[in-house]
């Protein structure tokens, strides 16, 4: 038992074996230790969703998860969505539909949308609204975000 802890995890396909202070959140670890600043910090109470990442296939608010809790996990952040260095279908759809305005909430929106499409390739608008309800957008680009998710589903799903 210690206030530092050895962490062995995979982030965006890359394995890391590092020691972290146990009082650092997964968000701190991603942003400060790995420099993955695409994951954003806003409310730090799990309400805004700006810090959303995917851990073992499920979205979490990384501000509410200690880094040590991700030991042995597979983490995907917005930086891990690209395929061969190019935006994936979902990211392209966000671009094409003007979904990203100021852009600050967009990494979180993308992670929630990605997780939705992983488990439900044919979502309806209300499924998108439910899946993304934990991601606040003050530009309130919800309509264009929803359209992008539905369009990406069309493109990707068989």
């Amino acid at each position: 038992m210690s206030d530092r802890f050895p962490l062995d995890l995979t982030v965006n396909g890359q394995r890391y074996q590092v020691e972290v202070p146990v009082y650092h959140t997964l968000l701190d670890f991603l942003r400060d230790d790995l420099g993955l600043t695409g994951t954003k910090e806003c409310c730090v109470v799990g309400e805004c969703g700006a810090c959303t990442v995917i851990v073992d296939g499920r979205t979490v608010n990384s501000c509410l998860m200690l880094a040590v809790e991700a030991d042995g996990c597979e983490v995907i952040t917005v930086e891990g969505l690209a395929v061969d260095g190019k935006p994936n279908a979902l990211q392209r759809a966000f671009l094409e539909h003007g979904s990203a305005q100021c852009g600050f909430c967009i990494p979180g929106q993308l992670m929630s949308a990605q997780a939705l499409l992983m488990e439900n390739p044919h979502p309806k608008a209300e499924d998108v609204h439910e899946a993304l309800a934990g991601n606040l957008c003050r530009c309130a680009g919800y309509e264009q975000i929803t359209e992008a998710v539905l369009a990406a589903a069309e493109e990707v799903a068989p």
């Binding site: 799990g46 969703g49 499920r58 979205t59 608010n61 509410l64 929630s112 439910e130 934990g134 991601n135």
Partner: peptide, 9 residues
């Protein structure tokens, strides 16, 4: 309860 992210944890 909360959002999907919250309900996952």
């Amino acid at each position: 309860v909360g959002s999907v992210q919250i309900r996952n944890r």
